[in-house]
Write a protein that binds this DNA or RNA. Structure first.
Length: 529
RNA sequence: GCCCCGGUCGUAUAGCCCGGUCAAGUAUGCGGGCCUUUCAAGCCCGUGACCCGGGUUCAAAUCCCGGCCGGGGCACCA
């Protein structure tokens, strides 16, 4: 049973699922292909399927669809520490999804074989040995190929040979890829040619393409045993039925697959689940395409699956986007069949609202320049609150002692522009100064007063600062579209205490996340303003 | 080319199934104000949309037809 989890209340309600009463308990599934990690686009079917199951007190299933070891090779290479199956589980757990059952299709081949046999016996499928090209000609003309009329017995015999990796082409002494496929008998005049007698199984030479999961999990013998691999439509059709799936939520690119899979259900006398197709998701400034992302990583454009520029869940997570934010976006977009392009503004705004109350504030000056304050009468104390309103979180207290009545601080170069001689400036939580002199690299100012109330009437700029004795050099990586900018500066030294992964706000700079701490450097990632 | 599916403020979404309550709601953005020791957050006010054309009807964002535009599919991928 799925438990409700802690999540910011979603102001939007999901529309009801169709025909819930007809089915009894709602069962949904998320069925990723482990040939790559999940991205924001995959979060849509995952979250919606999970959330509907939760809403109806139903069951949510995770199913890995890894039935093509040739062109959609599962991403699994324990020697290099890469395991997409586990990375996907991690992404889902991060999103807060829990599943009550998990299946891996490559482990279920025997099941698919038995249903293939059943389908052949019912006259619903036949072994086709036509060359692909030749067959397409028949198809385009809406004609039956010679194999279509094969007797059931002959089909069963051929199927047996195929499953055992034995040759089926007369005069050939071995089985090769492309020698045969198992086709589902559909309607040869169907307006969509791809529906006409679609392929249920094809040959994948296990010698050439041993399935990585079988190989690593069960060893070479098992991996070399299987020659016939079901296509998506076959495996999916069988599994959705066997697993009792009642509601399928998937992207609209799958809508024709519903039509194809329906044929199997008809032959078997099964009831087809409710299928809901939603549109595609786009994220402004990025590409939500597995192949394009993979290509970028391979070409070295990105540092890995979790590059903060990437819309992969790993990338978003590394960047500091919260799972709650992803939830809100997905729930907000809903199940409309239209495509939706999510704006970064929106994503950031949601994330910021969640982050703002829970995150501590720290001083940071990018691109520091010196500010020398003259005539400082005595030691100054700065109380830097962790949070402006949640004062119970405490503060850092800094005691700054002037030398020869002078106090040297650093402020951001971007604030240098607003320094005009004679201007009164408030150094946040510290004191007020009057600007005396501004040059390229240094500002001289005179101590004016301590309390902010003394200069309120001047409406002074209020800026952040750091003291050299209480500072640490940090860098902030700023993802900007396809670029990665690095901003260097000084932060107050208490950031040394932060743990990797901590999210904070650099005052007047933006929200950042501590990405890495080396003995020599603290490196943050810029989340958003 | 053929076959599906869509088009509501800049963006996202509600409403469309069951026509009137929609001179269209919400979020975000933008403008203004308040608050504030951050140019953040919060609060208040404002701005801004039914793709076009016909039809049905007393009445259409909602139903029908056509056009235009967008997306998807047309694999021995999922």
């Amino acid at each position: 049973m799925l438990k409700s989890r802690e999540r910011p209340s979603e102001e939007k309600k999901l529309p009801p699922l169709p025909n819930v009463n007809k089915w009894g308990r709602v069962v949904t599934r998320f069925a990723p292909n482990p040939d790559f990690v999940l991205h924001l686009g995959s979060a849509r079917p995952a979250i919606l399927s999970y959330e509907y199951a939760r809403l109806y007190n139903g069951k949510f299933i995770l199913r890995f669809e890894d039935t093509d070891p040739r062109t959609k090779r599962p991403l699994l290479d324990p020697d290099r520490g890469i395991d997409a199956y586990e990375m996907i589980r991690e992404d889902l757990r991060w999103l807060g999804l829990r599943w009550s059952e998990e299946y891996i299709q490559s482990e279920r081949l025997e099941i698919y074989y038995s249903y293939a046999k059943k389908l052949i016996e019912l006259g619903g499928a036949y072994v086709c040995t036509c060359p692909a090209e030749k067959w397409r000609e028949y198809r385009d003309r809406g004609m039956a190929c010679p194999c279509r009329n094969r007797m059931i017995e002959e089909n069963l015999e051929l199927w047996d040979r195929l499953v055992n990796g034995q040759p089926v082409i007369p005069g050939k002494n071995r089985l090769d890829e492309g020698d045969a496929v198992l086709r589902v008998k559909t309607d040869l005049s169907h307006p969509d040619p791809s529906v006409r007698d679609w392929v249920a199984f094809r040959i994948v030479d296990p010698e050439k393409y041993p399935h990585p999961y079988l190989l690593y999990r069960y060893g070479r013998n098992k991996a070399l045993r299987y020659w016939m691999w079901p296509t998506y439509n076959f495996a999916c059709a069988i599994d959705d039925h066997l697993m009792g799936v009642t509601h399928i939520l998937r992207a609209q690119e799958h809508s024709i697959n519903t039509v194809k899979q329906m044929y199997i259900y008809k032959y078997m006398g099964w009831k087809y689940p409710e299928a809901i197709h939603f549109g595609r998701l786009k994220l402004e400034g990025t590409v939500l395409s597995k192949s394009r992302i993979r290509e970028g990583i391979e070409r070295g454009l990105f540092t890995g699956f979790d590059d903060p520029r990437l819309p992969t869940l790993a990338g978003l997570r590394r960047r500091g986007i919260l799972p709650e934010t992803i939830w809100r976006i997905i729930l907000d977009v809903g199940i409309k069949p239209t495509d939706a392009s999510i704006s970064l503004e929106n994503l950031f705004s949601i994330n910021k609202k969640i982050l703002d109350p829970q995150v501590d504030r720290y001083m940071f000056v990018p691109d520091p320049v010196k500010l020398v304050i003259e005539d400082v009468p005595s030691e100054l104390e700065a109380v830097l609150k962790r949070h402006p309103t949640r004062t119970e979180r405490g503060a850092r207290v800094l005691k700054l002692r002037p030398e020869n009545s002078e106090l040297t601080l650093y402020i951001s170069r971007s604030d240098l522009e607003l320094m005009k001689v004679g201007l009164i400036v408030r150094l946040m939580e510290l004191c007020n100064v009057t600007v005396l002199e501004v040059s390229r690299d240094i500002i001289r100012a005179r101590y004016h007063s301590k309390d902010v109330s003394e200069v309120k009437k001047f409406e002074p700029p209020i800026i952040q600062w750091v003291h050299p004795a209480y500072s640490v050099e940090v860098s902030v990586i700023v993802p900007e579209g396809m670029n990665l900018k690095t901003v260097r500066g000084l932060a107050e030294d208490s950031v040394r205490q932060l743990e990797v992964g901590a999210r904070i706000q650099f005052v007047r700079f933006g929200f950042v996340k501590l990405d890495e701490r080396t003995p020599s450097e603290l490196r943050f990632i810029y989340i958003h303003p």
